[in-house]
Design a protein around this nucleic acid. Structure first.
Lengths: 191, 191
DNA sequence: GTCTATAGTTGGATAGAC
DNA sequence: GTCTATCCAACTATAGAC
């Protein structure tokens, strides 16, 4: 991670984001954060009250980035199918998993309403965003009127989140791609 | 957990299965295992070489159970859609997540080929099993011939695994159910 | 703001008595 | 087979000097 030129708090936040992604909250120690950030113990506890404080700040930043990245592919012209397809096919670090979704499997995150909140909010936002696009597709006659936008949106997000699981289990990105293609083949408007 | 009447190794294995499900590998300590099993330190290290040994045994048992449970709903008469539907709708402890899939988010599991192996094998088996059913559906004309069985199977498994993520993020099972219904609505043969 | 020192707790395991 | 004692490292801070 390139942290030169960053302020000490930023170096700590970036190190925490990396470690949360790589090892999760329970698998991440303050010492590891300090070492990755190249920052001493005293500095960390000067700028943050402790591990939960730093984690919350890091999670919020990651959540903001994820939203912006999703909006970049969703907020485009094109048919509903094209926009959903663009979301599903966007570049991802598949074997690392989702930096937000992975946190749902962390017991200490789930046990804390404060730490879970930005995770919940991000995924809820994404589901709503996709549901709106599906609804547009239905309204325009692009999708069958029987489709329930909120359900299709949940399927899309779940396919991505589950795709990470399949990929990490097998150690290959193939399973992720297969799941996405499967869903797209079901969603594809009749040619 | 009811462990009365079980042998000491079995009590340890069951306690480990619970803790792996609840807290993951990195979040589970030998001391916690002993306490949950009601077994002393000496006993644990007498029967198992350490935490990895015990975890491997526990994961294998959980994987076996998951396979049997899946086979019970898949190995039935009925159309391909009905069998896949039965799998997707089978009872689950949604907010606890998948006891096998959750392990893919555990860094120490993924870092160890030995611990990852039963996880990989179980999910690969499930994908293959579902792909076979989809293939039958295609062969019988129940599904569109354009569907790729392996891809649909991956979508089905991913929807379930991702459904757990959505549910745990929101703290409610609703999102899981929505994802499943969405996928089923896309998969449903024309009425 | 940053550093080093200190401290109590837990993690993960070994040794040896019984 | 099980128990207690012991061990060293790591975890998660706090204290106080600079």
């Amino acid at each position: 991670m390139y942290t030169a030129g960053m302020s000490t708090p930023d170096r700590l936040i970036e190190a925490t984001r990396e470690l949360l992604w790589e090892r999760g909250y329970v698998g991440m120690s303050p010492k590891a954060i300090q070492q990755h950030a190249g920052v001493g113990q005293g500095s960390m506890y000067h700028h943050f009250t402790g591990k939960p404080d730093l984690a919350l700040t890091a999670i919020r930043r990651t959540a903001d980035e994820l939203r912006e990245a999703a909006d970049r592919v969703l907020d485009t012209p094109g048919s509903a199918y094209e926009r959903i397809s663009a979301y599903l096919l966007r570049e991802r670090d598949v074997l690392r998993g989702c930096p937000v979704g992975r946190l749902t499997m962390d017991p200490d995150i789930i046990a804390s309403d404060e730490l879970r909140e930005p995770v919940d909010e991000t995924i809820a936002w994404l589901r709503g965003r996709l549901a709106g696009i599906v609804r547009e597709g239905v309204d325009r006659g692009e999708f069958a009127p029987s489709l329930v936008p909120e359900e299709i949106a949940a399927s899309v997000v779940a396919t991505v989140q589950g795709g990470y699981v399949l990929a990490r289990a097998s150690g290959s990105t193939d399973a992720f791609d297969a799941g996405v293609r499967g869903l797209l083949s079901l969603l594809a408007p009749p040619a």
